[in-house]
Simulated scan of single mutants.
Amino acid sequence: MNPIDVLIQYWPRLLDGTLMTIKLTLLGALIAAFFSPAFALIRVQAPTMVQAPLRLYISFMRGTPILAQLFLIYYGSGQFRPFLTEWGLWNFFRDPFNCALLTFALNSTAYQTEILRGGIMGVNRGEIEAAKAIGMSRLTTLRRVVYPHAYRIAWPALGNEVILLMKASALASVVTVFDIMGRTRQVFSKTFDFSVYLWAAVIYLCITAIFVLIWRQAERRLSRHIEAHNKPRATTVPVKEAQG
């Protein structure tokens, strides 16, 4: 079958898989972005004993393959079905999409936490001291000084993490989540036409290119906002009239 014919005939399935991949990636990244700022702050400022459970979680997530994590959550949860049923959680864990989303969110949270921790540690101490000197509270200093600059520093690395998460989402197909790779395998099982994998690669490339453009545009806006915020404002000095 001609590669173009494959695309024309099966594009609805590939489109469905593309939407599933985008949904899985965005939800996983957003959930991670919600928790990572607090976790990063704990990693920077909390005592060692308080950090210990968080450091163990981050080490596990960063030190083991995401495929193993996905199997642990999807297949491992079945070992605890009586307890999960009693707690009302079995309906969540029996859904492959929920297990894949939980896996990717947990994995991305660990990486985003460490990326943002580096951003927080890179904030100029002088700016923090200046914020304290003018009477800013701790919460206001975090909101208006620490986090904006930390995100500016960490922004490129966070973008790379989202891209890696999107690529890793292809593993969701092994637990019957029909993302791009899941739909591609379906089409290949019917046509035995290897060109469908080429189209899948093109789709991944297009998603990545569009995301990079959007992320860089957001980075420019963020940089202009911080530069405008830090730009010294002109002050008017009253001039005394000459005494005659």
Rank of each mutant, 00 (worst) to 15 (best):
P3H: 08
P3E: 10
I4C: 00
I4W: 11
D5F: 04
V6F: 01
I8N: 03
I8M: 06
Q9E: 12
Q9T: 15
Y10F: 12
L14C: 10
K23R: 14
L24C: 08
T25M: 09
L27K: 02
G28F: 09
A29I: 05
A29N: 08
I31V: 12
I31T: 06
F34K: 00
F35R: 05
S36L: 06
P37E: 04
A38Y: 15
A38H: 09
F39I: 13
L41P: 02
R43S: 15
Q45S: 15
A46I: 10
P47L: 06
R55T: 12
L56V: 15
Y57N: 11
P65C: 09
L67H: 06
A68D: 02
I73R: 01
Y74A: 01
S77L: 01
S77W: 00
G78S: 11
F80L: 11
R81V: 01
R81W: 02
P82K: 04
F83Q: 12
L84S: 03
L84Y: 03
E86H: 08
G88M: 07
N91D: 14
N91K: 04
N91S: 12
N91T: 07
R94T: 03
P96V: 00
P96K: 00
L101D: 00
L101Q: 06
T109H: 00
A110D: 07
T113W: 04
L116S: 00
R117H: 06
G119F: 08
G119N: 07
M121Q: 15
M121E: 13
M121W: 00
G122S: 14
G122T: 11
E127Y: 13
E127P: 01
A130Y: 04
A131P: 04
K132M: 03
I134R: 15
G135F: 05
M136A: 05
L142K: 05
V145Y: 07
V145F: 05
V146M: 12
A150Q: 09
Y151A: 05
A154N: 02
A154W: 06
A157M: 09
A157V: 09
L158G: 07
I163D: 06
L164Y: 11
L164T: 12
L165K: 04
M166T: 06
S169A: 13
S169F: 06
S169Y: 07
A172I: 03
T176W: 01
F178W: 13
I180K: 10
M181N: 11
G182R: 07
R183S: 13
Q186V: 10
V187Q: 01
K190G: 09
K190Q: 15
T191H: 02
T191S: 11
F192Y: 14
D193K: 05
D193W: 08
W199G: 10
Y204K: 11
Y204I: 05
L205W: 15
I207D: 01
A209M: 14
I214G: 06
I214T: 12
W215I: 08
R216M: 09
Q217V: 14
E219V: 08
R220I: 14
L222G: 11
L222C: 07
S223P: 00
I226V: 15
E227W: 02
A228F: 02
N230G: 03
P232C: 10
R233N: 12
T236H: 14
V237N: 12
P238G: 11
E241P: 10
A242W: 12
G244Q: 12
